[in-house]
């Protein structure tokens, strides 16, 4: 009954202003990526020339490949590690050091990126690992696993435990119960978590700068070094592509998590 209520003018204005603040800069960026002129601020007609020049940019293409590969591998690693941690938190009951465990799980969510980056780099140095693609993957997995844990855990706690108990009661051993009963029920959350871990990896600049080495430069690192030199239409073009891709992945993830794609029941 209360849903019949309409928003007042004050609320509408707050919504409009808030979303304008969030989206107008991105919209402006996207519009100017189609600008024909070299000056970003002066409009000189529609054109795709900056997108064409991207295609010829070997360095950018190489970085894009590295970024996508690192995203996919690190998201998969994060999915396994993060789901295991979520299972421990949701299903393992009490054990010695549980609160320390929970603390460690969520630390990467709140730590400044610079510190995560420095600490991982020092770990790799201490282990005498050469920095490159593998260390990049581990670094990204280490913080995106925390996000996976949040997403999967929040789904796990809503799963009716009596369904798992019913499977055990009917003679299915715990490991088999997990794969046959629990995983199908949390699959949408796991799919969403993978996609989110993937985008986190795609977006990251700071941690990648610390964790990677020569030969594995990510796209955000390339963009960053160009942005430092100033605003150019070419960066607008690559940023637009990037945002479109990420928005697509996130939309997919939220559809999956709502059960609209894979079905929840």
């Amino acid at each position: 009954m209360t849903s019949a209520r309409r928003l007042g003018p004050f609320n509408l204005a707050a919504l409009a202003a808030g979303f304008a603040l969030l989206y107008l800069p991105i919209l402006a960026l996207a519009v100017y990526s189609f600008n024909d002129g070299r000056m970003v601020a002066v409009w000189s007609g529609w054109s795709l020339r900056w997108y064409r020049s991207l295609i010829d940019n070997r360095l950018m293409l190489d970085s894009a490949r590295v970024t996508l590969a690192a995203g996919a591998v690190s998201a998969t690693l994060a999915l396994v590690a993060g789901t295991a941690a979520a299972l421990v938190l949701a299903r393992a009951g009490r054990f010695l050091g549980r609160s320390a465990f929970a603390g460690l799980v969520y630390v990467p969510l709140v730590m400044p990126e610079v510190i995560i980056g420095i600490s991982l780099l020092l770990l790799f140095v201490q282990l005498d690992l050469d920095r490159g693609f593998p260390t990049l993957v581990v670094a990204h997995a280490s913080f995106s696993a925390a996000f996976v844990t949040v997403v999967v855990h929040s789904r796990l706690v809503t799963v009716d435990r009596s369904i798992e108990e019913a499977a055990l009661d009917l003679g299915s051993p715990p490991a088999k119960t997990f794969f046959l009963v629990t995983v199908p029920m949390i699959a949408p959350a796991m799919a969403a978590a993978w996609l989110l871990a993937f985008t986190l990896s795609l977006d990251d600049l700071v941690i990648a700068s610390f964790a990677t080495g020569p030969g594995a430069t990510t796209l955000p690192m390339r963009v960053y070094s160009q942005v430092r030199l100033g605003v150019t239409p070419e960066i607008n073009a690559i940023s637009t592509l990037f945002i479109a891709a990420v928005a697509g992945v996130v939309a997919l993830a939220s559809l999956v998590n709502k059960g609209l794609l894979f079905g929840r029941k």
Binding site: L22, P25, L29, T199, D203, L205, V231, S239, I243
Partner: peptide, 25 residues
């Protein structure tokens, strides 16, 4: 509304800062 409020969080903060610089130039 919720999806649109969260969406910027998932797009690269670097790119959003870049977009913001473009506005304030």
């Amino acid at each position: 509304l919720l999806v649109f409020a969260v969406l910027p969080f998932w797009s690269s903060s670097l790119i959003r800062v870049y977009a913001w610089i473009g506005i304030l130039n």
